[in-house]
């Protein structure tokens, strides 16, 4: 059985973001990159299935992006993926989700995967489109926002998260694609021996031009900081002073501390 998991590298979201000179995306200066949080759960689930199936399965991890994305591919290999594919693209942010999905679908089509895992959404773009779009392009069964997953007798049983605490149970035959939500599992940390082993695993590099046939459908016009709505007070400085000020505010403006 052939498995694929798609991962994206995103900046640390606690960073300060500034538009780049094109005004269409963020400047990468001073940003540290890591694996998209949702994709960590996708990799973990794919690795667990790979372990369940044993040698009958092969798990590929794929990322579209510049050379820095090799870091997340290595992490996924160290978590237990068998091989990695780096679709080399210096500027994935200038492509829309439709193009990224088409690129991944073009690669996947040549490999005939039985089951594909993606994250529910990316933290920087957050379109939540790429998984279902790939599935639709490939004609695969698809369900989204998984908080539960099991596989037995050729059937995927997925628990989808709906609104307000409700969940839905879905069954699918292969080939299929699922998108993984936060909390689906507890992602492992790569161990040192596994990091060493990962160094020997195959890393295939494919230039994006070999896979990209589609034009942008929705281009970003501009990228900017939100307008400050004002109103709120920002307090900074010495902790003791902050505590005194906040204590006074709570006493004056809220029912707290009024016995």
């Amino acid at each position: 059985m052939k498995l694929l998991v798609c991962v994206k590298q995103v900046p640390d979201l606690e960073s300060r973001f500034k538009p780049d000179p094109s005004g269409q995306w963020y400047s990468e200066t001073d940003l540290a990159f890591r694996i998209n949080e949702y994709d960590d759960y996708a990799v973990e689930q794919a690795v667990r299935l790979r372990e369940q199936l044993g040698d009958a399965a092969e798990l590929t991890v794929l990322s579209v992006g510049p050379d820095r994305v090799v870091e997340v591919l290595k992490k996924a290999l160290a978590m237990g993926c068998d091989r990695a594919v780096h679709v080399q693209d210096p500027a994935p942010h200038l492509k829309d989700p439709w193009q990224i999905a088409s690129i991944i679908a073009a690669y996947a089509r040549s490999q005939q995967y039985d089951l594909i895992f993606t994250g529910f959404q990316s933290q920087d773009r957050g379109s939540a489109q790429i998984g279902p779009t790939i599935a639709e392009l490939l004609g695969y069964a698809c369900t989204t926002t998984l908080v539960g997953f099991s596989f037995a007798d050729g059937v995927v049983t997925a628990t989808r998260e709906l609104e307000g605490g409700l969940k839905g149970v879905v069954k699918m035959k292969l080939p299929a694609l699922v998108t993984c939500q936060l909390g689906l599992n507890v992602p492992r940390y790569p161990t040192l021996p596994n990091i060493m082993k990962a160094k020997k695993k195959e890393l295939e590099t494919v230039p994006v031009a070999n896979l990209l046939q589609e034009e942008t459908r929705i281009a970003t016009e501009s990228f900017y900081a939100p307008e400050k709505k004002g109103g709120g007070m920002v307090l900074e400085g010495d902790v003791t002073e902050l505590v005194n000020r906040v204590y006074a505010i709570l006493k004056e403006k809220t029912p707290a501390l009024r016995q």
Binding site: W98, S127, A128, Q129, P132, R217, I218
Partner: peptide, 21 residues
Amino acid sequence: SYGWDLAPRVAVRLGVGQVSE
């Protein structure tokens, strides 16, 4: 959970782009 699940499939079939959220 209904919309983000369905919208990309419809967009692909219509051959048009999708804007999320």
